[in-house]
Design a binder for these strands. Structure first.
Lengths: 187, 187
DNA sequence: AAAGCCATGTAACCAGTTACATGATTCT
DNA sequence: AGAATCATGTAACTGGTTACATGGCTTT
């Protein structure tokens, strides 16, 4: 099987508690949204593959009301695979800032456009910061309930730091641009 | 043609000055490394497509020594296409922090491993910060030579802010983890 | 002599998204 | 009545990487 990260996200989550593909999707969306994303198109085929390889086992929960759930549980083999991956150095971060691409070419656009891109970037980061802060507040009182919570808190703190830095940059960059454009006009 | 960002990066760079596929690759790698990346596998096919659509024109430079260069120049049609894209709102940022994935599942690994991932993340960011700072220093004295330089400076400043925030988080997270692990042992 | 840069390009892969299909239940 | 949520899944597509082929020039 390919050495795909999707596999390890699934194994890691199942390492915490057994769950379905649907649960995995929700878990990633709510708890890892800042630094990761998964679609059903990745999750369901991965679950099948992992089961075929004996790294997880499945159990169908028949519901009288609503659709059946397929709940997966990690096996010893799966746990070993996860731990091997955890011990390997992480690949470097990958970022795609489309708005920075537009700002980079800002001399080929109208100044108001560049300011708009910066403002929208700021707004996106304010939303992230808000989400992260709420998440942090909800985690703090239950920090001792599970060892895992502590590590989740650390990932939230990075999200907070980076979005705060981004917001500050946006304010600063807006001012710089306005001053710069003002100068241009005078000349 | 597909609405692929590669296309706009190429158009944007050719909007500054005519250049070859090889130059584009180098330009992205040195000046946009923080927030974007392109491979030859994307660049060369895109150049062909753009030429076919009349958005750029090509001119072969025959060299006596060394390989020929194919230099591309943007056309009015290409410039219009670029400006239309610049005016559209940017898509939200995409991040892949593999190390955060590993840290998120940190309760399933040895504590030293988690500290190692954080240290390596810090090291990566120190390197970025250094590169960005050097770039900033080289740009400042020639800021008035071209309007474009100002926008490039803004993108560098965001890279600096985020890597600084990341380094601070790493120091803080290391301390927090060490304290946390210390407490565990006592119990 | 070896390594690395200049320079172009493609084929085979791997990764990830989107749209669709299905259908019951619960909330507004 | 309509929207949202629960729940599983696939096919077609788009996006992007890697490895390879070619070959001369320059630096160590």
């Amino acid at each position: 099987m390919k050495d795909n990260n999707t596999k390890y996200v699934v194994l890691g989550l199942l390492g915490h508690t057994p769950m379905s593909g649907y649960d995995i999707k929700k878990s990633v969306a709510t708890r890892m949204s800042y630094f990761w994303d998964l679609s059903y198109g990745q999750i369901y085929p991965t679950l099948k593959e992992l089961e075929k390889n004996g790294q997880i086992t499945k159990k169908v929960e028949i519901k009288e009301h609503g659709p059946n759930r397929i709940v997966y549980t990690i096996t010893d083999k799966g746990l070993k695979e996860l731990q091997t991956w955890l011990a390997k150095p992480a690949k470097k971060e990958v970022h795609k800032y489309e708005f920075l691409l537009k700002l980079f070419f800002g001399d080929q656009a109208y100044p108001e456009l560049n300011l708009k891109h910066i403002q929208e970037f700021k707004a996106r980061n304010q939303k992230i910061l808000q989400t992260m802060t709420l998440f942090e507040e909800s985690l703090k009182p239950i920090l001792n309930e599970s060892e895992g919570h502590y590590y989740i808190l650390l990932t939230i703190l990075l999200g907070k730091s980076i979005s705060q830095a981004s917001i500050q940059w946006a304010d600063n960059a807006s001012k710089m641009l306005q001053d710069h454009v003002g100068k241009e006009v005078k000349v």
